[in-house]
Design a protein around this nucleic acid. Structure first.
Length: 241
DNA sequence: TTCCAGGCAATAC
DNA sequence: GTATTGCATGGA
């Protein structure tokens, strides 16, 4: 006898299956972390506070929205703990608002964000984005922010999804690595192609997109660090069973 | 010491 | 159009 559960699981596509499994393993992630929120999950590596599991109401203020945008730029090819230090420095120097950051000396910005690396490039990018954000009247389109120098596809999608709550699926290095290991994409699959696979497979929903991306990052930190053995990934068994 | 991290733009072919 | 390179810090 085929149970209802079996039927559902057979109909469920691979991308949905992975999402359910990851959520089951790790639970809700509470992204995007904000330094202003009191800590709810002290176990998260590198995080002092700011995660908000099961609460999708953030950002609640313009400054939180701005902080997310700066975090997106600062985390380009950089680990989150370093970004957190940079954000705290910016806050300490009263630079966590678009108005203030465009008024202050670039050297103070560079000094603040130095722990996050690439500080010459990132300071320019932060100033450019701050000027743009300061004069922003309504939610921008993806293409609009993608045209800003220093904002590529991943940063654009991250800003849309976490700062503006628009459902754009984010593809990052971890996501690519996982998808390749599972045999779901080819070696040279391009950003837009991978994004399409996810967006075609799951409900177009901001909360799900936010959660799924965060779960993929968390999962990758367990099984997909460079040089580690992908074959230990429990998702491999999930897909072959 | 060497390698890597929640990319991106410029340049080379 | 696709591949390579520079950007930079701090942790593993």
């Amino acid at each position: 006898m085929i149970s209802l559960i079996d039927n559902i699981s057979k109909k469920m596509n691979t991308i949905e299956k992975i999402y359910k499994k990851l959520l089951e393993i790790y639970g809700p992630q509470g992204w995007w972390p904000l330094i202003e929120i009191n800590g709810t999950n002290p176990t998260k590596t590198g995080s002092i506070n700011g995660y908000h599991q099961n609460d999708y109401s953030y950002p609640r203020t313009k400054n939180q929205q701005f902080e997310i945008i700066l975090g997106v730029i600062l985390t380009q090819n950089t680990s989150w703990p370093q970004v957190e230090i940079a954000l705290k420095n910016l806050k300490k120097n009263s630079l966590l608002s678009p108005k203030k950051i465009t008024e202050k000396n670039i050297n103070l910005i560079k000094k603040s964000i130095k722990p996050a690396g690439y500080y010459n490039q990132k300071s320019e990018r932060i100033i450019t984005v701050s000027k743009y954000f300061k004069s922003l009247k309504k939610t921008p389109s993806r293409d609009e922010i993608l045209s800003i120098k220093g904002i590529g596809p991943e940063s654009a999608d991250s800003i849309m999804l976490y700062a503006f709550k628009i459902p754009e699926f984010i593809i990052d290095a971890y996501t690519k690595r996982i998808m390749k290991a599972l045999g779901l994409i080819s070696e040279n699959a391009k950003y837009d192609k991978i994004k399409e696979i996810f967006e075609r497979s799951i409900k177009k929903d901001t909360k799900i997109y936010q959660e799924y991306h965060a779960l993929l990052v968390e999962h990758a930190k367990h099984y997909y660090k460079k040089g580690s053995d992908f074959k230990k990934d429990p998702l491999l068994k999930l897909l072959t069973s």
